[in-house]
Simulated assay, not measured.
Amino acid sequence: MSCRVFVAAALLGLASLRAQESESLAERGLKQLIEQQQALMAEAAKENPKFDEEAFAQQMEQVCRGYEALLRANPNLAQGYAAYGYLLSKLDQRKQAIVMLLKANELDPNQPLVKNQIGNYLAEEGKPLEAVNYFLAAIKLAPREPLYHYQLGTLLHEARDDFITSGEWKADAIDRAIHHAFRQAAELAPDRIEFTYRYAESFYEMNPPDWDGALKAWSELEEKAPTPVERETMRLHAANVLIKQDKRDHARALLETVQEPALQTQKQKLLDQLAKPAES
């Protein structure tokens, strides 16, 4: 090998090594910024009467400047744009956040968190037909993330009329999709009450209804409920389902066990239903 070729190869290897070091430094810097923002957010979430909002804002501003410096030095760091966009969305800087998220998506279209956050932005902007594609893309990339299924179900439910009016969705198809999305979320995260409760509620929206499935869902929730008022809330739902099944004696017996003062208004409404003649 000639000296010139050897030197050229050495320089190429050195450039490659420096690129690897630069990438490693960028990743390390990103990790540190994420850890800082997580620590600040965790502190802000605590119920601390002595929480210093001014100090929090100053520290968060430092983190933001850190992201901006990192991205100036590493303009192709997709995960950096994603993390910064996520932080800005948490700080309610939505327009700045979406710029970062779209850039992250452009650089790396395989980040499910980015897809989900863009979907959230579009949903909040009143663009459900655009948002749904991003939620579906997030689910395709991370099918075992329960939050993505839950947010898809929520979007379909809240914008149901928009989807039907578009002509791209039939009413029965969207109702099945809503129920399926909440079921997936509940099955993937059975300890998340917001997911399992919403799944149980979705039985009310099915046509034709699956009351046996609904009764099972509310019974399972009652077993897991940690407090008396929560257990009796699930019992009220179960009684409601029994009324719809025309199992009136069973419903009445169940309602007699609801004693929490906070639930007496809901209980009375169901008792009033029982006082009416059964529908033929």
Rank of each mutant, 00 (worst) to 15 (best):
L91T: 01
L91H: 01
L91I: 01
K95H: 11
Q96M: 04
A97Q: 02
V99A: 13
V99L: 12
M100H: 13
M100K: 09
K103Y: 01
A104V: 06
N105L: 12
N105W: 09
E106R: 11
L107D: 04
L107S: 05
L107M: 09
P109L: 08
P109T: 12
P109G: 15
N110D: 14
Q111S: 10
P112C: 12
K115M: 14
K115D: 15
N116T: 02
N120C: 04
N120L: 13
N120T: 10
N120G: 06
N120F: 06
Y121G: 03
Y121Q: 03
L122P: 02
A123Y: 05
E124D: 15
E124Y: 12
E125D: 14
K127M: 12
K127L: 15
P128N: 10
L129C: 01
L129N: 11
L129P: 09
E130N: 10
A131D: 03
A131K: 07
N133Q: 13
N133T: 08
Y134A: 02
L136D: 07
A138Q: 06
P146F: 08
L147F: 09
Y148V: 04
Y150R: 08
Y150L: 09
Q151T: 07
L152A: 02
L152H: 06
L156C: 04
H157W: 11
A159E: 02
A159G: 04
R160L: 12
R160H: 01
R160Q: 14
D161V: 12
D161Q: 15
F163Q: 04
I164R: 07
I164W: 04
T165W: 03
T165G: 00
S166P: 08
S166Y: 07
G167D: 08
G167V: 12
G167R: 02
D172A: 11
D172P: 03
A173I: 01
R176M: 10
I178N: 05
I178A: 06
F182L: 08
R183L: 13
A186E: 10
A186S: 14
E187A: 13
L188I: 08
L188H: 06
L188Y: 09
